[in-house]
Design a protein around this nucleic acid. Structure first.
Length: 546
RNA sequence: GGCGCUAUCGUCUAGGGGUUAGGACGGAAGAUUCUCAAUCUUCAAACCCGGGUUCGAUUCCCGGUAGCGCUACCA
C-alpha cells in the first residue's frame, strides 16, 4: 500500500498542484468527507495536478478495519480514483524526526504531567489548558534526566508567549485570517506513548509529500494557525489553504452517525440506488456553484467549471428527513404500499411492538412514531431529482447494465433482451436505481402479487363494466398481433364497440396485467409481456371479479 | 467562558450601492397523455436586527443577535 515518496516534486515551473484527502478510519465514509475528497479531486483535475490519498490512522485506539473498508468502498463507488496512496501509521519515523527537529530547536518541550483529557469540558469552559509555566520552563537538564529515567512525557509546542504575535495567512475561500499566539495553547506534538498527534503527523506528511494545496473542512480553519506554527518551526514552506464550509443536518448540527443515522454514510446512497455521478453532482452543489445556473453537470463539466472562487462560505444543509424512529408527532399510520421496499419492511417490522398476550395481538405502532419513510422521502429532494436527471441522460444499454444486477439481487431473473425493453419503459419513471424493483416487478414475476379487485373497476364504471371490458380484451388479445400500433387500433376499436371510453377500456387491462393502477404505457407493456402472460393475467382478473 | 467563521425564498444558490433581487429543488394550480412518469405554463416563497457612510443600502463599515467550528496526549 505504501509507495515511495515522489522523487522530484515541484521542480518544474508549471504549477501542478498536489492535493490530498486524508480520512481517518474511525467511522464510515460520510458525505462531508466525500465532498472534501471530491473538491480536492476536482481541483487537481482542473489544474492537471495530483491527488494523494492518505489514511490518517495515528489514533490506534479508535481505528477499525471495518471503517477502513467502508472508506475504500465509498471511494471506489465514487469512481474518481486517486494517484498516490499512503498510510500514516507507516510513516511514524518521519513524524518522529520532525518532532525531534522542533524539539532540538527549542521550539517544543517535554510535558511530564499525566494526560488530562476532558478538562476542556469543565463547566463554564474554564480549565482550558493554554499553557503551564511551571511545566514548559523545566530546565533542559532536568527534562533530560527525567526522560532518561523513563518517565513518560508528551511533547508540546512552545507557542510564543513573551512576544505575542499575530499568525496570518490568506485562506483561498475565507480570505485573510489572523490569530494571536496568546490565544493558541501549547498543543501536543507527541503523545506520551510516542505516537504523533494529528497536528504533527498531518503537517509532517503534508510537507514531506509536498502537498501544496490543503483543501479541507472548515472545522480545521482554527487549527491552521497551529499548523503554520509547525510548518515554520520545521522550516517548511507553507502550502496554500482552502477551507470548505461544513455540511450540516437540517437542525443545523454537524452530521453524525449517532444522531442522524445511515443517511450520512456514502454507502447508503450507493445501496439506495444513486448513480455515483449524480451523487457527486449533488455534493458539488452543496457549498459550490458554477455561477451560471447550471445544476445537472457531468463529471467533465464539473472538472472544467470547478474553481476555489466558486466556493461559498456558509455551511450547507443536507436536507434529509430524520430517521423514522425519532419523534414523529401525528397518530399511528403505517404506510403499506404494495411497493414497499425491503428497507421499509425491515423498519416497519422493527417498529411493531411485540404484543404481550393474545388479547392485544394487533399490530401497533409505538406512540410518537407514525410514518415510515420511503427511501425517496428520506434523502435530500435535490439529490433524488438530480439522480433522476442523470438516469434519464443514460443510454438504454448503460442503464440496463446498472439495473440488471439490482434485479438479479432482488431475486428475479431476466435476460438482457427483455431487460433492454423494460429499461426503455421505466427510464423516466424511476428516480433511484432500486425503484426498478417496485416499478417493474410485474415484468419479472410469474404470479402477480395480490391486488384488490376493486382496482379493476374503471373510472365512472362498475364491476360489470370491468367484466365486460376484460372479456372483450381477452377475446381481442387472443388474436391481435402484439405490436404497439396493432394493439392500439384493436383495443380502441373494441372500446368503441363496447361504447366505453378508451381510458375505461385500458385501465382494467392495465391493472389486470400490472397489478396496479400506475404503470408504464399499456401497449408497450403488453408488447414486452407477450400474449401468453397477458391473456393469462386477464383470465385471472376476470375470475377475481366473480 | 476565550478565539475564529458565517448570515439572500423551506432547502441549495446567483447577484450586487439605484434590479420587477435571478435560477433550481420542493410545494400549489393548470395544459398534455390510456394511468403514472416525463414535458410545458402559471403561482406562492428571501436579502437576521440596529446604527453609520451615502442622494441612495439587501450590497460597504461597526455593533447586536443567532448558528457553526476550535478551545484533547481525537482527527
Amino acid at each position: 500500500m505504501l509507495e515511495p515518496a515522489r522523487p522530484d516534486a515541484g521542480s518544474s515551473a508549471v504549477r501542478k498542484p498536489r492535493v490530498r484527502f486524508a480520512p481517518s478510519p474511525t467511522g464510515f465514509l460520510h458525505v462531508g468527507s466525500a465532498r472534501t475528497f471530491i473538491f480536492n479531486w476536482l481541483y487537481a483535475r482542473h489544474n492537471g495536478g495530483t491527488v494523494v490519498l492518505r489514511i490518517d490512522d495515528t489514533d490506534v485506539e479508535r481505528n477499525t478495519q471495518a471503517s477502513l473498508n467502508s472508506i475504500f468502498e465509498g471511494l471506489r463507488w465514487l469512481d474518481l480514483g486517486w494517484d498516490e496512496e499512503y498510510q500514516q501509521s507507516e510513516r511514524l519515523a518521519i513524524h518522529r524526526r520532525i518532532a525531534d527537529l522542533i524539539f532540538d530547536r527549542g521550539l517544543a518541550y517535554r510535558d511530564f504531567t499525566p494526560a488530562h483529557a476532558g478538562d476542556a469540558e469543565k463547566p463554564g469552559g474554564q480549565g482550558t489548558w493554554l499553557f503551564n509555566p511551571g511545566v514548559r520552563d523545566l530546565s533542559r537538564a532536568e527534562s533530560d534526566r527525567r526522560a532518561a529515567a523513563g518517565e513518560p512525557f508528551a511533547v508540546r509546542f512552545r507557542v510564543p508567549r513573551e512576544a505575542v504575535q499575530q499568525i496570518r495567512f490568506v485562506d483561498r475561500v475565507y480570505g485573510e485570517q489572523a490569530k494571536s499566539t496568546a490565544d493558541i495553547e501549547d498543543f501536543a506534538l507527541l503523545r506520551s506513548d510516542g505516537m504523533p498527534t494529528y497536528h504533527l503527523a498531518s503537517c509532517a506528511d503534508d510537507a514531506e509529500l509536498q502537498i501544496d494545496h490543503i483543501i479541507r473542512g472548515q472545522d480545521h480553519l482554527s487549527n491552521t494557525f497551529k499548523h503554520i506554527l509547525i510548518f515554520e518551526a520545521a522550516g517548511f514552506t507553507l502550502p496554500q489553504f482552502a477551507h470548505l464550509p461544513l455540511l450540516v443536518a437540517p437542525d443545523g448540527t454537524k452530521l453524525s452517525k449517532r444522531r442522524h443515522g445511515p443517511v450520512v454514510s456514502v454507502t447508503t446512497y450507493r445501496d439506495a440506488g444513486f448513480l455515483p455521478e449524480a451523487f457527486v453532482n449533488f455534493l458539488c452543489l452543496l457549498g459550490w456553484s458554477p455561477k451560471d445556473n447550471r445544476e445537472k453537470m457531468s463529471r467533465q463539466e464539473l472538472i472544467e467549471a470547478f474553481t476555489l472562487e466558486g466556493i461559498n462560505r456558509a455551511n450547507a444543509v443536507v436536507n434529509f428527513k430524520d430517521a423514522p424512529a425519532l419523534d414523529r408527532t401525528s397518530s399511528a399510520q403505517q404506510v403499506s404500499r404494495p411497493g414497499a421496499t425491503a428497507v421499509e419492511q425491515r423498519n416497519s417490522s422493527a417498529q411493531q411492538v411485540s404484543a404481550g398476550d393474545a388479547s392485544e395481538r394487533k399490530v401497533q405502532v409505538p406512540p410518537g412514531t407514525a410514518h415510515i419513510l420511503a427511501p425517496e422521502e428520506t434523502f435530500d429532494p435535490k439529490a433524488i431529482w438530480l439522480n433522476a436527471e442523470h438516469i434519464r441522460a443514460l443510454s438504454i444499454e448503460d442503464l440496463t447494465d446498472r439495473l440488471a444486477p439490482i434485479v438479479r439481487e432482488g431475486g428475479f431473473k431476466t435476460e438482457r433482451r427483455k431487460m433492454l425493453q423494460i429499461t426503455k419503459l421505466i427510464q423516466e419513471r424511476i428516480k433511484l436505481l432500486r425503484d426498478v424493483i417496485t416499478v417493474a416487478d410485474f415484468f419479472f414475476v410469474d404470479h402477480l402479487p395480490p391486488y384488490e379487485s376493486a382496482e379493476l373497476i374503471p373510472h365512472q364504471g362498475d364491476a360489470a363494466m370491468a367484466q365486460k371490458v376484460l372479456r372483450k380484451a381477452h377475446e381481442v388479445l387472443a388474436q391481435t398481433e402484439f405490436k404497439h400500433d396493432t394493439l392500439d387500433h384493436s383495443l380502441r376499436a373494441a372500446a368503441q364497440e363496447l361504447g366505453v371510453k378508451a381510458g375505461q377500456m385500458f385501465q382494467p387491462i392495465r391493472v389486470a396485467v400490472c397489478g396496479r393502477k400506475n404503470a408504464p404505457p399499456l401497449f408497450e407493456t403488453l408488447e414486452v409481456l407477450g400474449r401468453d402472460t397477458t391473456v393469462q393475467r386477464i383470465e385471472q382478473a376476470i375470475r377475481k371479479l366473480q
